[in-house]
């Protein structure tokens, strides 16, 4: 399985990457760690005419204390997230979720920004971003803008990023010791979640679901139920409300709805203890 031919452009800076995107329009795709894009290209589900390689922009790989939030460079690899002391203290849910992505080889190469920009509803990290109330910084020809996680994931493999925009930074509010849990259900260790649930309690409780619809999503009904003091079981009962889970060999809608309820309840209980 050989990808279709493409023109390879190595970007020497974020601005050079944006200029290349502007020049090539929808023919161009950004290449970071490549662990979502290259498999798609090998199946020829993606056939970009131009690949803009941003993998060497080391200045976009960092985990910094931003005061009330943690600022993470888009090219920070999962391995750096899962071994970060700062994340252990300030954003432990993100650190743990990063350790659940793929396998060690994937985590050595894959990047946080790449995973989020791919917008796959079955991947782990978008759920963490949603549950933690995070946001991302998008840089384009006209400058930077901040997009909240709620506004970022717009559809199946679609995000609010413009075709000439580069995701440069991820901002995660400090968790302040809030209880958290990530529940991932799959049959084989390295697989995508059949269903997953990310939970963070505290002042602004967030509950997000993996693989329960075309885009990564929050479980708004569960969040409202927690806010009104419902028990974990009662809150989890509405976990699948408003979802459109995919149907595949792993399970149908009813099976996934059941999983969502069970995983959210487990997550809420673990986060409370």
């Amino acid at each position: 399985m050989i990808p279709a031919s493409f023109e390879y452009v190595e970007a020497a800076s974020a601005d050079a990457a944006i200029a290349a995107l502007t020049e090539h329009g929808d023919e161009a795709k950004l290449l970071a760690g490549g662990h979502s894009l290259i498999p798609l290209m090998r199946f020829r589900l993606a056939t970009p005419g131009v690949l803009v390689d941003i993998g060497r922009l080391d200045d976009l790989s960092y985990i910094n204390d931003g005061g009330d939030h943690i600022a993470i460079g888009a090219l920070t690899r999962h391995r750096a997230l899962e071994t970060s002391d700062m994340l252990a203290a300030e954003a432990p849910l993100l650190r743990h979720v990063a350790s659940q992505v793929g396998d060690p080889q994937v985590r050595h190469r894959g990047t946080l920004g790449g995973s989020l920009a791919h917008g796959d509803p079955a991947s782990d990290l978008p759920a963490a971003l949603l549950a933690m109330g995070g946001s991302v910084v998008a840089k384009g020809p006209g400058g930077e803008r901040v997009i909240t996680a709620d506004d970022f994931f717009t559809g199946f493999l679609e995000t609010a990023l413009g075709e000439d925009e580069l995701l440069t930074e991820i901002r995660i509010p400090k968790a302040g010791g809030a209880g958290w849990s990530y529940q991932k259900f799959n049959r084989r260790a390295q697989d995508w979640a059949i269903v997953g649930a990310a939970v963070q309690l505290g002042a602004n409780p967030g509950v997000a679901l993996v693989n329960m619809g075309p885009a990564p999503m929050r479980a708004g009904g569960v969040e409202a139920a927690i806010a009104s003091g419902s028990s974990a079981a009662d809150a989890a009962a509405v976990a699948a409300a408003g979802t459109e889970p995919p149907v595949d060999l792993n399970g149908d809608e009813a099976y996934r709805a059941h999983l969502a309820r069970v995983l959210v309840e487990r997550g809420l209980i673990e986060a409370q203890t």
Partner: peptide, 13 residues
Amino acid sequence: GESVKSCTMFAAQ
């Protein structure tokens, strides 16, 4: 020094 799946990386990278 880090393990990588060489089928999921372009030589260019």
